[in-house]
Design a protein around this nucleic acid. Structure first.
Lengths: 199, 199
DNA sequence: CAAGTTACAAATTTTGACATCTGTTACCAA
DNA sequence: TTGGTAACAGATGTCAAAATTTGTAACTTG
């Protein structure tokens, strides 16, 4: 007997996201997902090769939504690049803080994937680095930010703000002073990026 | 029957460190420590109020050795403060990399303590921040580093180099490019600290 | 009384039988 | 052939009983 709805990858992803939110990443089995969809778990395996792949797909979809929200800020040419850089870095933090509050289970699932060295995590970092590179390139173009290589500089800025974007620090993001700390780091980095060509 | 050696706090710490190295942090019980010393486990409790306190004492001793090694670099007034800052930050990373390689079990024990919000971890960070503050204050004194408040600036630099000093990133320290990344971050931070008084 | 012991309750960890889950294969229906 | 099921082996997770560990107290000895 076929399922009421024809069961496509998207329906599976939506159901998985729901289960994940409700049960948490540990207790979200593919049997549960299948049950929620009214099919046998083997049916799910027709669409995703493994539980890992399913989890990655869900997480990727969720991260892509974040990426798109941040891209709007990164591409806002109405804001001067230096200030845009600062705003964007704050937004990266704010988006993750919000996700921890709203979808702690999904956030935990992302943490597990990142720890497992999934390509989802590295791709996400690559996306963010791309946006950062674009901001810095804009700054280089209008002379407001000094850099030889926007991409290399983006990596440096990203590394220097690891405390505010790397999952490993998620626990510290609840600390009330965290925004001020990021602001101070931004300040020092922007001093460095503004500086007239070295001594 | 008294133990051969009179059993002082130091002997217990040494034995615990040995057990910790051999068995790892999870399987290092105070019964094991007592057995290694040829006494009953109750004897150990005469010297340390709890297992937690014993572990903290071991870890503190180990961290203090690191702190002292770094203090030598921080206080080396023969090296100009800017370069000293760079060298010191590299040393912080190098010391931890070496410990991971040599004493992975002890390093893991420190990680557990840090996660448990033990004062050992926060004290260690305070020690490091003190050394960093001293370097920056030296730079402010001889005019080579620009800062209003050496302590605040030290915090900013420490936050900006979290990827290279915070335990949460220990896994990334095996990456071969990590030293170069730190160097790049140092470069940008020093640009910021060198910059002539703002705009 | 200083430094240790034995003995013990409560908390924690380990163990092992049992249940569930993952991923595969053979099969069925439109 | 597409889209599903049922049945299965092996891996993984669960749960309660058993063993160990933590921490305390009353006791021993020089």
């Amino acid at each position: 007997m076929p399922a009421r709805t024809p069961l496509d990858a998207n329906a599976i992803l939506a159901a998985t996201e729901e289960i994940l939110r409700r049960h948490g990443p540990d207790k979200a089995t593919v049997v549960d997902v299948a049950r929620a969809l009214g099919v046998s778990h083997a049916a799910v395996y027709k669409h995703f090769p493994s539980k890992q792949a399913l989890r990655e797909a869900v997480t990727r979809r969720w991260l892509d939504r974040n990426r798109d929200a941040l891209a709007v800020i990164a591409a806002d040419s109405a804001v001067p690049p230096a200030q845009r850089l600062r705003t964007w870095l704050h937004a990266v933090l704010a988006v993750k803080q919000a996700k921890i509050r709203e979808d702690p289970e999904l956030f935990a699932a992302y943490g597990i994937l990142a720890a497992a060295h999934s390509s989802v995590a590295t791709d996400h970092v690559a996306d963010l680095l791309g946006q950062l590179t674009a901001i810095i390139a804009d700054g280089a173009a209008d002379g407001s930010l000094r850099t030889d290589d926007a991409e290399a500089t983006a990596r440096v800025v990203f590394n220097a703000t690891a405390k505010f974007n790397h999952l490993a620090h998620a626990a510290e993001w609840q600390n009330p002073g965290i925004g001020a700390e990021l602001d101070e780091v931004c300040g020092l980095l922007l001093e460095g990026l503004h500086a007239p060509t070295s001594p």
